[in-house]
Simulated scan of single mutants.
Amino acid sequence: MKTKKLLIALGLASLLTIVSACGSDSQARQGSETDPYFIGEVVEDREQTFSYSHIHGLSKHPEDNNKLLLASHYGLIEYDKKTKEGYFVGSERFDLMGYSVIPGTSILMTSGHPGEGSKLPDPLGFLWSEDFGETWEVRGLHGMIDFHGLTATSDQSKILGYGSDYNTDAVFVSYNQGYKWEVVKTKGLPLAHDEFFDFALAPNNGDIAYAATNQGLFYSNDGGVNWEKKLDGFMTAVYVIGEDEVIFYEASQNGLFRIKGEEIFSYDLYLGSDAVLYLIAEEDPSEVTVATFQNNILTTSNHGETWETLVEEGNFPQ
Rank of each mutant, 00 (worst) to 15 (best):
K2C: 05
K2W: 07
T3H: 15
K4F: 07
A9P: 02
A9L: 14
S14Y: 09
L15H: 15
S20M: 11
D25L: 09
Q30F: 10
G31R: 09
S32I: 12
V42M: 08
R46S: 11
F50Y: 15
F50E: 14
Y52E: 05
H54D: 04
H56D: 02
H61S: 14
N65H: 13
N65D: 14
L68E: 07
G75H: 02
D80T: 05
K84N: 13
E85N: 12
H113C: 03
E116S: 09
E130S: 15
V138D: 03
V138S: 06
R139C: 04
G140K: 06
L141T: 15
H142I: 03
M144N: 08
H148V: 14
L150V: 12
D155Y: 07
D155S: 05
K158G: 04
D165F: 06
Y166G: 02
D169G: 03
V171D: 01
V171A: 01
F172D: 01
E182A: 10
T186L: 01
T186Q: 02
K187D: 08
P190N: 10
A192K: 09
F197S: 05
F199Q: 01
A200P: 01
A200Q: 13
P203K: 02
N204T: 12
N205T: 02
Y210M: 05
F218R: 03
N221Q: 10
D222C: 03
G223A: 06
G224P: 01
G224W: 04
K230R: 15
V240S: 09
E245M: 04
Y249P: 00
S252F: 09
G255H: 10
R258D: 03
I259V: 15
G261L: 05
E262F: 09
I264K: 13
S266E: 08
L269E: 03
V276S: 00
I280Y: 00
V290E: 03
T292M: 01
T292H: 00
Q294R: 13
N295G: 05
S301D: 09
E305Y: 13
E308W: 11
L310I: 08
L310D: 04
N315S: 15
P317K: 12
Q318Y: 14
